[in-house]
Amino acid sequence: MNPKKRAVTVAVAGTAIGAAGLAVMAMPAGAGEAPELPPVSAQELVSSVLRADVPALAGTVRIENDLGLPSMPGLPVLDADSARVYHDGDEGSRIALEQGSSELTVVQSGDTVWSYDSAENSATKLTVPAEAREHRAHAEEEFSDPASAAGRMLDYVRQSSTVSVDGTASVADRPAYELVLTPKPTERTLLREVRIAVDSETRVPLRMSVLTNGTTEPALEIGFTDIDFAQQPANLFQFTPPQGATVTEERPQAHDERLPEGAIGEFSGEGWDTVYVGTVPAELTAAPGSEGRDVQGMLDQFGTRVSGDFGSGYAIETKVGTAIVTDDGRFAVGAVPQQVLTDALAQR
């Protein structure tokens, strides 16, 4: 082969290999073929989910949101887009939320919960009191007969929605059933359906997607991108605060004192058009600038002025829900169009 020809051959071959490699990486991880699974009824599926104990696992959870939410400063939790989750199949679990180049780690073993924020090098130890554990055990007892519990749950949900098993999906390379909740036509909601993918073998929910009217892409999707059911090393579920960390200890009270008085509202309506109506705590609406939270400024920036029978205020609309904050300090939130909120506010 003459040198020129060989040069061209090498150039083309090398470039082709490199470009192919890059293209493979650029290809989105396709949903793949829907796996073949034996049919299952909605009731069976729900009861098997309730019966299943979460086995030991390690996985990566990805949160995709296309809520149409304005990006708000000071809400760092929404920045997290990926979390690594570990569970030892018993009482130990570990969640690592990645936020840019820092990490928020939460380690639970038994009744001790440690949370560690790498950006501030601060650790918080929380001891879950005995009553709370008893309460949980009591709740578990109620579910001790998963079949009847599933029946009761489905009866309740079916008052407002259609529940069905709609085909299968492949989530994190595992075959899964898709449980779909669709609101009945009479429900006034922005949501079209909620899909929950349940692993066919372990019956662990692997993905939840919320779809809104008029879109094909989910507005909110939380799901495993990879999951591995295997025994995890025990030291994952232990935590010792590192050198120089600020350590605080917290004991949760019977009812959370940090929540300012007066913030408590109540639910109105049923099913999908449930609306939470309440009063904005006075501290929040007071002088702007305290703790850097300028509520009025944020409302001006993201809200639109609305007025009606209920008075007047600001409405913030996203794809999955609407919120209204009135000028006299009331608020209403729900996964509903604005009209439902103004009705609920006017009734009170």
Binding site: V8, V10, A13, G14, T15, G18, A19, L22, M25
Partner: peptide
Amino acid sequence: GPLAEGALRAGCYIAIALSLAYARLST
């Protein structure tokens, strides 16, 4: 995962760049 992907991406760039360099150098 992300680190392995980054390493692979670097490998692809090396393959492309070195083959082009060879083509020029050999002629």
